[in-house]
Structures are given as structure tokens and as C-alpha cells.
């Protein structure tokens, strides 16, 4: 399980005077289930990019269990993310033409040879996420099933943290409910920290710490399960 520590983080885009994200100090202990909310343009996506190392950080530091992402090269950040961060995105980013199983193991296969333990775990995760036919082509699945495959993919390498960016935004409420339940349950079972960016009150309600961003700054940070 990973803990997150942010110090003096400032993300700016060229041509914009104000930083899109400015977090002076934030600590997320290991095992936290954190919810980030905010209007669009509040800096939520930039927050995700910063903590996952998708974007280079020029000011401040972002550390996972003491590993400072700002000290890593682009390739180093890619490798760290691959190994320690399970990413779930709004648009799934699954690859048509491949089966559910192949999609789960694709990131590993692109980096190296898949071990039999990993193949076994992939099948286990697909089972847990309720995908009945792992060999089925991904494009023939429903959207809810697709996001569940994406969750299985995020968990393959037992990441210390799951970062989910609007995981339910493109699903209907029932499928969103299933995915929300799955994320919370699996983060607990797999012993991973969970950081979710969402507008979905049903999902937010399942999480135990809530941060609200406005114009790139934290304006609210509350502990405890909220009523939906």
C-alpha cells in the first residue's frame, strides 16, 4: 500500500498566468479511500496527471512512500506507474480486436513476457470482476463490462494505489454502481490505496475522505463517509 505526500506542488500551462493546480501540502496515508471532486476546470485531471507521473512536475514534489516522482525521468515515471499505480480511466482505453483477457495482460505483455502466475491472476481478476467469458472480443462487451475489465487490468500487478479518473461517468447508473462497488471492495481486498476523481455522488458516498478542488486549490478536505 502506498501513501502519498505532496509538497509545494504547482502546475502551470504555458499562456496561463494562474497555476491550474497549486497544492501546498497534502498527505494521503496508505489505505485511504480518497475522493476528489470539483467543477470541470478545477484541476482534477491535472491532479491525476501529476500524482501518476503522466505529466512532468516543475515545482514542488510528489512522493509515493518516499519515492519522489520529480526525481524520476519520463521513462522512470512510466516504469513506476506501470509497477505501482493501477489506472482506471473514464474512456476505458481498451483495445479492440483483443479479448478481455488479452486486454488485461496487454501492458505487461508489451513490456515483457507474461508469467504463468500473472496469467492466472488475470483470470482470477476477470472472474472477480464478473466477466464470464474472458476470451470474448472486448468490443462485444457492454460498457459496464468494459470498465470492469479495465479495473481488472489496473489490479493485475497488485498496485499500491488505484487511481480512477471519472470511472463511472460514461456508464449508466446500474453499471456505475457495480463498478463503484468493485473499486471499493477490491481496493480493500487487494490492500491498495484508492484515489478517485468523480462527480458521481453514489461513488463518492462509498469513499472515506473528500477533497474538493476549486480553481486548482483544495477548498475542502473532510474525513468520514458522507451521505449520498
Amino acid at each position: 500500500m502506498l501513501s502519498l505526500e505532496i509538497n509545494g506542488l504547482e502546475m502551470r500551462y504555458p499562456g496561463l498566468a494562474a497555476p491550474v493546480l497549486a497544492i501546498d501540502r497534502l498527505q494521503v496515508p496508505a489505505g485511504t479511500r480518497l475522493c476528489i471532486t470539483g467543477a470541470s476546470g478545477s484541476g482534477k485531471s491535472t491532479f491525476v496527471n501529476a500524482i501518476t507521473g503522466l505529466e512532468r512536475i516543475r515545482h514542488g514534489s510528489v512522493s509515493w512512500n518516499g519515492t519522489d516522482l520529480t526525481r524520476l525521468s519520463a521513462g522512470g515515471r512510466d516504469a513506476f506507474r506501470a509497477r505501482h499505480i493501477g489506472l482506471v480511466m473514464q474512456d476505458f482505453h481498451l483495445f479492440p480486436g483483443l479479448s478481455a483477457f488479452e486486454n488485461v495482460v496487454l501492458p505487461v505483455r508489451l513490456a515483457r513476457r507474461l508469467t504463468s502466475t500473472e496469467a492466472q491472476r488475470a483470470r482470477f481478476l476477470l472472474d472477480v470482476t464478473g466477466i464470464a467469458r474472458p476470451q470474448q472480443r472486448i468490443e462485444t462487451l457492454s460498457r459496464g463490462e468494459m470498465q470492469r475489465v479495465a479495473v481488472a487490468r489496473a489490479l493485475l500487478l497488485k498496485p499500491g494505489v488505484i487511481v480512477a479518473d471519472e470511472p463511472t461517468a460514461s456508464l449508466d447508473s446500474q453499471a456505475g454502481e457495480q463498478v463503484s462497488e468493485l473499486l471499493v471492495r477490491l481496493s480493500r481486498e487487494e490492500r491498495a490505496t484508492l484515489i478517485v476523481v468523480t462527480h458521481d455522488p453514489a461513488l463518492a458516498a462509498r469513499l472515506d475522505r473528500h477533497i474538493r478542488l476549486v480553481a486548482g486549490a483544495i477548498v475542502e478536505d473532510k474525513e468520514g463517509v458522507q451521505a449520498p
Partner: peptide
Amino acid sequence: RQIGALRALGAPMRAVVIL
């Protein structure tokens, strides 16, 4: 987008280049 997603999901750069 596809290439960005592959990298985001942890495919190393060399894999993207080879691909």
C-alpha cells in the same frame, strides 16, 4: 490517444516504438 493510453497503462516507450 491510443498511444497515450498505452504509455499511461505502463507500456514502456520502447514497446510503443516497436509497436
